[in-house]
Computed example of a mutant assay.
Amino acid sequence: MRDVASPSPAADVDGEAPRLNRRQAAKVRTRQKVLDAARQLFAERGYEPATIRDIAKGAGMSTGAVFANFQDKAELFEAVLSTDMIKLAETLKSAAAAETTVRARVLAALTAGYHASLEQLPLVQAVIARSWFQPVAAEMRIRAAIKPLISVVTDTLQAGVGDRELRQDADVRLLGEMIYGAWLSNYRRAAYDGWTIQQLTDQIGKQTDVILAGALSRQ
């Protein structure tokens, strides 16, 4: 009878994540250093002024090491954005969960978003600015990256339908996209008018009230 080989140390056993060998672990660490350095520079300078050379310097490595992990600056930017959007979505979810009414949950989530991202305003500006000039494929990837944020809002609205705070025929997808669009547009007031988080919160509260006015349950 043929012996059955034992799983190698790198194999996935009982659902556990496969262990990395030394070379793979080093590559993961290098990639993370590049991402951390890029995130810091994008947050401080925005997209265009942050060069690959400066990102490499911030990571303590050569530009070749950066290009060994990312095809170009655009791919690096998308990787930073995707990671940050996942974390930001979790922040929004946690904030929303602490409230009871649909309006309070939506506003708590969006206010938490302002708190988490306003210190990185150049990065937010870069996301908005690039959205008008990037290739279609890049646009689709960015939409996928921000989808978790919009989902927090739409899921909250859907719960409001279930709780009968909102009408049963409310188009939660459209309402969620409108609220997210209003939330994102307010960053211009922070960038050019110096609005504080409190001013942004007050504004998105008024915008949310207008957007949801026709969807509120009459019960």
Score class of each variant (00 low, 15 high):
Arg2His: 11
Arg2Thr: 11
Val4Arg: 03
Val4Pro: 03
Ala5Ile: 14
Ser6Ala: 14
Asp12Thr: 15
Asp12Lys: 15
Val13Arg: 08
Val13Trp: 09
Asp14Leu: 14
Gly15Glu: 10
Gly15Met: 05
Asn21Cys: 13
Gln24Asp: 11
Ala25Tyr: 04
Ala26Asp: 05
Lys27Met: 13
Lys27Ala: 15
Gly46Ala: 09
Tyr47His: 05
Glu48Leu: 07
Glu48Gln: 15
Ala50Gly: 09
Ile52Phe: 01
Asp54Val: 13
Ile55Leu: 07
Lys57Glu: 06
Gly58Asp: 00
Ala59Cys: 06
Ser62Glu: 10
Gly64His: 10
Ala65Met: 15
Val66Cys: 12
Ala68Thr: 14
Gln71Ala: 09
Phe77Tyr: 14
Thr83Phe: 03
Thr83Glu: 11
Lys87Arg: 13
Lys87Phe: 08
Ala89Val: 12
Glu90Val: 12
Ser94Glu: 13
Val102Leu: 00
Val106Ala: 02
Val106Ile: 10
Ala108Met: 06
Ala109Val: 01
Ala112Ser: 15
Ala112Tyr: 04
Ala112Asp: 04
Leu118Gly: 02
Glu119Leu: 07
Pro122Glu: 07
Ala129Asp: 15
Arg130Glu: 07
Phe133His: 07
Ala138Val: 09
Arg141Val: 01
Arg143Asp: 13
Ala144Tyr: 11
Ala144Leu: 11
Ile146Arg: 00
Pro148Trp: 04
Leu149Lys: 03
Val152Tyr: 00
Val153Lys: 00
Asp155Gln: 03
Thr156Gln: 00
Gln158Val: 01
Gly160His: 03
Gly160Ile: 02
Val161Cys: 03
Arg164Gly: 09
Glu165Arg: 11
Leu166Cys: 07
Asp169Val: 11
Asp171Gln: 02
Leu175Glu: 02
Leu175Gly: 04
Ile179Val: 12
Ile179Arg: 00
Tyr180Cys: 08
Gly181Tyr: 03
Trp183Thr: 14
Ser185Cys: 09
Tyr187Phe: 07
Tyr187Glu: 10
Tyr187Thr: 01
Asp193Glu: 12
Gly194Gln: 13
Gly194Tyr: 12
Gln198Thr: 15
Leu200Asp: 06
Leu200Ser: 04
Lys206Asn: 11
Gln207Asp: 06
Thr208Glu: 00
Val210Arg: 11
Ile211Pro: 01
Leu212Trp: 02
Gly214Gln: 05
Arg218Tyr: 12
